[in-house]
Structures are given as C-alpha cells and as structure tokens.
Nucleic acid binder design. Structure first.
Lengths: 391, 391
DNA sequence: TTTGTTAGTAGAGCGTCCTTACAAATTCGT
DNA sequence: ACGAATTTGTAAGGACGCTCTACTAACAAA
C-alpha cells in the first residue's frame, strides 16, 4: 500500500458554526466546491466551473491545478463538438479511479460486509467477516481485520474508511451505545485510525444511508430514510445537513409507540413486548422478523392486508414528522418484497390523509432495498464528505 | 487528524453552503464571532475573546477596532478586581443602547403589534395598528404605516426591521401564502425595504419565536416551539439552524390529524371540521378558541380533565417528532392558563410514555406565554442574526 | 482578413490572518 | 524593594488567497 497522499487531504468543511474561519478554510471550501461540481456534473471546462461556482476563471485554474497535482483531477483533452464560437474548452474531470475508499456496513448482526470502492462508489472488491456472536473488543478486532483485508485488496491509495454501524454515534465517531455489538463509549473511529493509519469515519447506519440517498437519490435536501431490518431506525437530512439531535440519538424512531390499549379495545392485536422494555413500539410490527412472522403462510391477499395494516401504523408515526419538517421524500429501506408493496402504499396514503394537502401532495415515498450497495455507498459518501468535502 | 463528519460552514448571514467563500466572508464571520461573544458573555477583554474564539489577540484587536469604529462596541475601562498577575485588561462591551431594532408581530388577526427595542431586546417604545379586516395590499399598507411610526419613535439609528408573520415565508422574506392576511407571493421584505430604506427581515411567526427561544431560552440547540393561538403552528431549531423544509412549510403541524373515527368508536368526541377542509386536525382541539370552548363553564377539575385530554392528543403528535429529532426541548407558547397546567403535563407524560426512555427522559417541556414579548424578541433576533450575524 | 467571442494564464494589488517582537502594567518571589 | 514572571495590547513583516486587469490562444462569422 502506498500512502494515501503526500499531503493530508482534509478538505471537508469540518467546521462548527462557532469556529473561526481562516483564509485557508475558505480555500478548502472553494476547493471542495470545484471538486463537488466535477463530482456531480462530470467533466467540464474550467470556465464552466467558474460560472457555476461564482469564482473567477483565474481562481478556478489555480484550484484545478492544485487538484491535478494531487491526482484527484485530470485534463481530458479538448471538448469535441464544435459549433461554438471561441477557443474550445479543455475538459477536466475527477479521477474517480485513482483512489479507493473502504466502506463497511455493520448493520447485520451476523456478518460484517465491506467493499473497496472507487470515488464514484463503484465496487472494486468485496469482503465479509463473520461475527460469530463476538461483541465488545472482540467485535472491534473482527472489524479491524476486515478493514485490513479491504485495505490489502485496494489497488489504489485509500483516502479513508467509512463505517455505518447501528447504535448512537457522535460526530467524532465515538460509539456511545450499540447494545447489539456490546459497544458503550467506544472511540471506534479514533482507535481504527490509530491502528490502520487511514482516516476513519463512523456514523449510524441509518444516517449513513440517509447521506447516501441524499447524494445519489436525486431528491431535494429534505429526506428521511427509514431502515427496516433487525430493528427499525431512521436517518434525516435537512437542508443538506444530517440531523444529529441533542445526544446524537436522532432517528431513533423504532421505539415510538404505535400500538396501545386502544387497539385492543377496537379488537386489534395487542401491543407486543419490545426489546426496549416497553410494548407496542414501531419495531415490534415493522422489523423484518416481525413482518415475516406476520405474513408467514398467508395467501398473497391476506399478506397484503397485514402489510397494509403495518403500513398504516408507520404512516401514523410518520405523519407528524413529515408535517413538522416539510419533508420532500421518505425512503423505506428494507426487503422490497415486504416494504415495497402494500406496506408502502398504506403508509403513504395514511400520511397523505393525515397531513395538509400541501405537505402530503408533494411527498415522495419510495423503497431502497437493503442488502444492495446502498449502505456501502452511504459509507463511501461519509468518506467523500469527510475527506474531500464532496456531498 | 480528527474525524468529524461534514458540517456546513455558516459564515454569517445570507450565505448558502454551496456558495463560494472569499476572505471578506471569512472576516465577516470572525467579526460576528467576536460580536456574538460579547452579546452572550457581556463585557470582556480582547484577550478573553481571543482565547474564546481561537483567533489571535492581534486579529481580535483589529476586529474590535473595526466594531468600535462602527459604534457597535465600546471600551469600558480597566477591569476592576485585581488578584491576577499581568497587565490589567481593558474591558470592551457591545453597545446595546446605541442602536435600535424595530420588531413587529403579525400573529394577531385583529391588530399588529410592534416595538422599538435595543440590541438587548429591551423595549423602548410600543405601537400597534388595527387591521380592521383589511387584507392584501391594504394590510401591507397598514404594516408599512406601523413601521414608519416605529422608525419615528426610535431615538437611535435602526439597524433593521424584523417581522414575524403567519403563513409560509421563504428565506428571502417572500410571503408565499398567508391566507388570513390575503397575501400570496408577496415579496414583503423587499417591498418594505424599498419603501422604508431599512433592512427588513420577515419570517414565519412560529419560526421567529423558535429563534427567540433558541437565543434567549437558554436550552440546547435542538428545540421546537408550538404556538397556540388562533391557529397552531410550530418552529424548529436544530443544531442552531432554523428548519425551513422543502417548500418553506416546516412547522405546519396544526393540520396533522389527531382525532379520527377510532375515537368515535371508543366513545370519544368526533373529529371536528377544520378550516383546512379536512377534519380532526390538531388545530381543531388545540387552538385557543377550541380550548376556550372546551373548558367554558366547567369546574376546575372538569376543565383540567378536558385540557389533559387535549394534551394527550398533542403528545401523540409530538412523540414521533421528538423521537426522530432527539429534541432537547419543546416550548408551548400560548395563554398560560390554558396550556401551562394539565395540558402541558399530559402532553409531556404522553410523549414520555410513547418514546424511548433516553429520548423522553431528558426532554423538557415548558411554556412561554404569548402576548408577552417573546414574539417581539424573536423578531429582534431575526434582525440581530440577519444584520450582525449574532445568534 | 478582420472582427468578435471564449478559454486559459500572468502579474499586480488588496485584504486577511498569523508570527514574532515589543512596550506597558501588574503580581510574585526573594 | 526590586527583579522576574505574567498578562495585555500593539506594531511590523510575511504568507496566503482572491480579484482585476491585461494578455495570448483558438475558434466562428462576416
């Protein structure tokens, strides 16, 4: 493995709003602006970048030269297709193949999955590691081993490692609590970074997915991802920024009560006990195990009716959130055969019927199947964002 | 290298995260940092500011000199109370009396209320203007007249006008829709600014109150204000930033359904028709008129029971929002005799019983009575934030 | 060939902050 | 009492970043 780069890449505007801003921060910001433009718009000319960012051509040339010097950007020859007056533009584009990112998804209780990806989130190699019930420091060791595997599998310099993990995780990558992994107050990012010598970024798995959807999903800057797996979680991006919440516990929507005694009085199923110690939580009806139990052995019609019933519960919980935040989009992330059909439709129509037309009308609700590379792409975005400032 | 996730740089007023950053923006940001420190911490020395902001003493001296030149800051003599080694510090403090802010609250359907305030939000003069049912351009004219009155009443230079208005309002102060005032797509801020020659900032009244609570309420950076008046609205501040939502309609929580047919089946009151055309909205039970009707002529005990019943409805709607955002604080803004007692307690206990302990335990729910100067203070914060970058 | 337009670069200039150095004023140690 | 240490605030010089102006290069249209 070569070193990541000769110079430490640290463009990410990792600045708290109450921190001072120096000229070099401004430059880093503008550099990220240029890179983000190339990332999203593909190869363009320096002049195009200047028009798009508002910077002068001179400054853009300077920034692009810097980026070329670090091999993040390359000249791609002269733009074809004449017909335009003036000197033809020299195209410059991001070198998405010149660096690699290591992305790891810890969502699954049984096995850690990871991949080596290009800067465009194309998978170059995959590795997995079985947890075999290990928790605490042993689980960290398994994770570190997987990361070493992946680093060894990378054929280009690795700019960083992105990890999506269940649990409550703060902005510095400290896992405050992840009961399923036995992690409480584990400075995961710092430990792995010290051990591996590569920048490491860790965030909640649902938050990571929300970042991925924000970057690759195409919708506006206000979205919520509901992850439906062993448990139920959520990640929220508002105005382009991840919501963290007071104690970094934003998105913990799995344990909102959606079934109570009133349901019993109306002849519906009673609230089920939840791992959190209470009963009737969203997770007791919406988690994948709960859904599978509910539809096991039923005919398609009955199954759909059951899924729709769960969808209505979800809609009940989502309606106030969608209203209060004026969300543009809710993404359901889970097995498509469970969440893609009647469940999604019932949830959407419930939200629409329980909110103002102006709120519900424009709301999109779509599915993103877990198990594909959405989670890994999100982890890659974590690195892109943290190391290069690209979102 | 630390591993924080990306966070948008906020360089003072009117800078979107995707815009270029020039050295002068950096300076404006640092200037605001100095001013904000003086605003929140009171008079201190230049060296203290340097330690607190991370800037050097040299730079702080320069910035302070600039602020003194604009009369926003003044030297206040040498710090008393010895006991500390070294040269005694010269205190500098914000000149809160040297400028005035005009704040206007349009929440009330009958009359506009406004005040001239110092930079510390102390009221210097008050004025009101009756609407007498006027809407549209005539209502704008009444508002403009009130602003002129207030400008004339100011005895110091006015740095700006802050207006909190019902309705959906975008970041540029365009009232997209305010049915009660008959405003649809009215560029209120721009029109008043052109007519009055003073910077004008307009925002939704609930959002304005949320800003005020964020600045003066003392709690953390994640709070929600629920305004309970003619209608029901909400404003949300997350990580120190106002949530706007996809179409600037964030906070429109008044028209979430909280009463439906199920309640009828359980022998509870049927959903009431709502002005929005649907039925059972939160506003149909929580608005001040609805509350007054509900408790009219009842004994204190019966009244409390009714208020608690409404509080539970509110709690039902708030629980998912509090969970999803990990809010630190919910502020109920309305007549204290209605929302301060049983209603608040029922809402809080409902939220607690329907969310994870870690979410509900630390949640604060308090009241802020409308009709006092909270709304006006919020409008003043709008100006402080917009003109001076102080929040 | 001339004119006009667009792309990209060079040099000078201005703004911003930092580092280093220094003067002033006070307390502490002996 | 008196120097040493400490703290505050300022001044000079330098590094960095962006812009403005001016220039060359390359093309289309007249």
């Amino acid at each position: 493995m070569t070193t990541t780069t000769s110079r430490a890449i640290r463009l990410g505007p990792a600045l708290r709003p109450t921190e001072k801003v120096l000229p070099e921060h401004a430059r880093a910001h503008n550099r990220s602006l240029v890179l983000a433009h190339l990332f999203h718009s593909g190869p363009t000319s320096r002049a195009d970048i200047a028009r798009s960012t508002g910077l002068t051509r001179v400054t853009v040339s300077d920034l692009v030269a810097e980026l070329i010097g670090e091999n993040l950007v390359a000249e791609l020859g002269v733009r074809a297709g004449g017909g335009r007056v003036g000197k033809p533009a020299t195209l410059v584009g991001m070198q998405t193949e010149a660096f690699h990112i290591v992305a790891v998804d810890l969502t699954d209780d049984a096995a850690l999955t990871g991949a080596v990806m290009t800067l465009a989130s194309d998978v170059v190699a995959r590795r997995t590691a079985a947890l075999d019930g290990r928790t605490g420091d042993e689980a960290v060791a398994v994770l570190e081993g997987l990361c070493r595997d992946l680093l060894a599998a990378a054929t280009q310099p690795v700019i960083g490692i992105g990890i999506g993990s269940p649990g409550v995780i703060d902005a510095d990558g400290v896992v405050l609590e992840a009961p399923n992994r036995g992690w409480f107050g584990v400075p995961l990012a710092a430990r792995l970074q010290a051990a591996l010598g590569v920048p490491v970024h860790v965030a909640n798995d649902a938050n990571v997915q929300a970042l991925g959807e924000y970057t690759y999903g195409g919708a506006g800057g206000s979205l919520m991802v509901v992850t439906i797996g062993q448990g139920v979680g959520a990640g929220i991006v508002l105005d382009g920024a991840l919501v963290r919440g007071r104690h970094d516990a934003a998105g913990e929507i799995g344990h909102v009560t959606v079934v109570d005694e009133r349901d019993v009085l109306l002849g519906e199923p009673a609230p089920l006990p939840c791992v959190c110690g209470r009963a009737g939580c969203l997770e007791t009806v919406l988690s994948v195990p709960a859904l599978r139990r509910r539809v096991a052995g039923l005919s398609p019609e009955d199954s759909d009716a059951q899924l729709a019933s769960v969808g209505r519960k979800l809609g009940l919980a989502l309606a106030p959130v969608v209203s209060a935040l004026n969300l543009a989009e809710v993404v359901l992330s889970g097995p498509r055969e469970l969440v893609g059909g009647a469940l999604r439709e019932a949830a959407l129509s419930t939200v629409r019927s329980r909110t103002m037309p102006v709120i519900g009308r424009d709301l999109e609700m779509r599915t993103a199947s877990i198990g594909e590379d959405r989670a890994l792409s999100g982890a890659a975005v974590l690195v892109l964002s943290g190391q290069l400032g690209v979102t």
